[in-house]
Design a protein around this nucleic acid. Sequence first.
DNA 1: ATAGTTGCAAAAGTTTTGCATTGTA
DNA 2: TACAATGCAAAACTTTTGCAACTAT
Lengths: 139, 139
Amino acid sequence: MNTHRPFKQALDRLTQAGLRPTRQRLALAKILFDGEDRHVTAEQLHGEAVAACMTVSLATVYNTLHQFTEAGLLREVVVEAGRSYFDTNTSDHHHFFYEGSGRLIDIPGHHLVVSGLPTAPDGTRVARIDVIVRLSDQG
Amino acid sequence: MNTHRPFKQALDRLTQAGLRPTRQRLALAKILFDGEDRHVTAEQLHGEAVAACMTVSLATVYNTLHQFTEAGLLREVVVEAGRSYFDTNTSDHHHFFYEGSGRLIDIPGHHLVVSGLPTAPDGTRVARIDVIVRLSDQG
DNA sequence: ATAGTTGCAAAAGTTTTGCATTGTA
DNA sequence: TACAATGCAAAACTTTTGCAACTAT
């Protein structure tokens, strides 16, 4: 039954996250989670979906990406004004951002540490810490 | 000559940065730099400018903010998709972001340290490191 | 005068919403 | 059948660009 494994994988992800496995969601989940970790924009994912001969609007791609993010399947990373990436790696990690090409990659390993953080102001708690290391050309 | 001090301050900032001191730039610089450090969006700054009875379009506010940023007078901080803040504090520092209210504030002191950073990939150098500590309600 | 800048209207993107349609029990 | 959830067109944003008008030599 190997032919159906990517399908089952995507299906399981959705049902475990409490999301109904609709056709569009399944197809997008298959593209997103069938392989290694990825960083995609809504635009990119929409392009891939169309290339894979599925009919889906960009609006639905946005909505789906946000639903996946709320469900904990994705993490949103904002690097530039008007440009969100969605990261299939939801574990605690940080990013390199190539200012030239706009590419975003995970910082490998777990060596990067943020220390000396002041306590969160009263009535708040730290929801997440985002570290973006911006790289420009020329070593 | 105290009445002209804010004007002279703004003028000096602009000329030192190599920007021609036009009327709009002077007015916006006065709002931005005449007092303590600030975090403003283009929309906010435009609102303040209009409230101060100056005629300026939102597009010019954007252009001016980017020119100021390129000239090193401001630093752009992107916190959410479609929402850039411009920070009048250009020194090396990081931010708390209140997810509830959308407010951005500097992390006080210089205690926060990022360590364990891998070397930058070949052909690149680290242009900047942004740390955003996201806060949500409830302590 | 004139070469280079500026500032804004209009255009281009990105993201969100309202509602007809679809799918499920 | 009813009920809730989905998916998309259209709307609402934010941001950028092209060019007429201006400015400082």
